[in-house]
C-alpha cells in the first residue's frame, strides 16, 4: 500500500510517501505527480517509505523527466538507509544531479 500526502508550500510541493512503491502502487504515485505544473520545486519526502523496487524507481525517473519538461527541480529527502543505497546503486541521484545541472 502507498499513501501519498501532498502539501503546497509557496511554489514547492511536498509529497510525503508512506508505504511501498512498487508495480502495485506506481499508479497511485503517478496520479499525484502527473498533474504537477506551475511549481518550482518538488520534494519527495521518503521518510515513511519502507520499500522501493525498480518499478518504483522507474516512476521517480518519470517525474524527473516531467520536471525537465515543466521546469521544476526534484529533491529526494529522508530516504532510509536501504533505499538510499539502492537509489545510489542504480545511479538515480547522479541522473537527477546531471539533469538539473544541465538545466541550469
Amino acid at each position: 500500500m502507498l499513501n501519498v500526502k501532498s502539501r503546497l508550500e509557496g511554489k514547492t510541493v511536498r509529497l510525503s510517501l508512506e508505504g511501498v512503491l512498487d508495480i502495485s502502487t506506481v499508479d497511485t504515485f503517478n496520479s499525484q505527480t502527473e498533474q504537477l505544473s506551475g511549481i518550482s520545486e518538488l520534494v519527495l519526502d521518503m521518510a515513511g517509505l519502507e520499500f522501493i523496487d525498480s518499478s518504483g524507481i522507474g516512476a521517480i525517473l518519470q517525474v524527473v523527466r516531467l520536471s525537465q519538461e515543466r521546469g521544476f527541480t526534484v529533491n529526494l529527502e529522508n530516504a532510509n538507509e536501504n533505499i538510499s543505497e539502492l537509489l545510489n546503486t542504480v545511479g538515480l541521484f547522479q541522473i537527477i544531479e546531471a539533469l538539473q545541472k544541465g538545466a541550469n
Binding site: T73, N75, L76, E77, E81, S84, E85, N88, F93, I96, E97, Q100
Partner: peptide
Amino acid sequence: TTLKEENVRYA
C-alpha cells in the same frame, strides 16, 4: 556502502 553514503549530499 553505508560509509560511502554518509558522504553524499543529495540535491
